[in-house]
Design a protein around this nucleic acid. Sequence first.
DNA 1: TCTTCCATCACGT
DNA 2: CTAACGACGTGATGGAAGA
Length: 426
Amino acid sequence: MEQSPLVFHIDVNSAFLSWESVCRLTEDPEALDLRTIPSAVGGDAASRHGIVLAKSTPAKKYGVTTGEPLVQALRKCPSLCVVPSRFDVYIHYSTLLMNLLSDYTPDIEKFSIDEAFLDMSSTIHLFGDPWTTANQIRERICRELGFTVNIGIAPNKLLAKMASDFRKPDMCHTLFLDEIPEKMWPLPIRELFFVGRSAQNKLEGIGIHTIGQLAAINVELLKPILGEKYAIQIHDYACGIDPSPVAEREPINKGYGNSTTLSRDVDDLDTAFTVLLSLCETVGARLRADHVICDCVCVEIKDWDFHVQSHQTTLNSPTDSTTVLYENACRLLKEFWDRTPLRLIGVRATKISDDEFSQISLFESEQSKKMKEMEKAVDQIRSKFGTDIIKRASFLKKDSIVDHAASKQKHLSHSALKEDDKNTKN
DNA sequence: TCTTCCATCACGT
DNA sequence: CTAACGACGTGATGGAAGA
């Protein structure tokens, strides 16, 4: 039996801000709805680090944009109500959303915390026509979960994603093949998925400003500028071509990273090592939780002038051990860091493989066995009480320079109300 | 010469 | 346009190193 391909893309409007609002209203029905005032979710408003992760519609009217520094946003809109992010809350609402969506098809690809693709090709006949069905989903999410979404309706993922981005919020849009010239081709090149700043500049350099112009040009002319593979991809995209299937199972991680911007620049090895230990502990715990091991450790630094460097090393044997990660990370950093003050340090484990048959080697020493047991115990306690409960001894003496996201999520509903007194500095 | 490794860049949420 | 802000993740690229 013949099926025409049909993909929905669901995108939560201002996800973090919407979810923050819903959560607060659930806790206190009298609470102020952040969506009705100029507001934003930011990393850490108090220390004036961080960026705008999501903004309300009223904030948008002041020119506040996602991704911009909080200080800049506050200059544009001094009355902006900035609240800290709570990822545990967002994961909760994301799960509710994905569960609801799974009522409509088993073919779901969770694309990010607030986005999903639904392959509706084989199930749409159970519900009605695509437009009506999408609107029913949109209304049901609003009614049952309390937040709005955009839904793109199209024959493939790329077009569905483009469609969900059209007019916001709380809207459904179609983008079928015959609608491409009218709805997609007039758009500026930058709005095409996968065209970032760099590609935008290169394309505009040869007089291409709209998606339609990109679709019309001979792809051979793009290859020398963008590289062969990338040229073909975005040219296909501009033509509405995307054969990639909706992937039901998310692929296993290729890497596990953890990085942090420090509350002040660091220029001594000891402090840097302490930060590395914290990062390695997180990464190691995640490796063990997923029952995987890594064969490569990478250390990344960003200095005071935003200059980024990274170095990596291949391990003698794959590991999930915090200690091994830490020793290698320290060695790397010591080797390549020229002691320029650092604002960010990161650790990344790559070349991931499965842990299944990596039982304790016969030659493994008693000491490393004990080490592993200790790490396992730390992981267990952390998973029960949160990552802040246990700290290694070396943390206890120094003042904490690491901005732990987990350590600033208490008392936030109160502190969020007194945002006014910190706009005096620059 | 062919592959792998390494560092960086680009792109997305 | 510059000044200046995150924490992730993936994949491409081009040069160096190794087989």
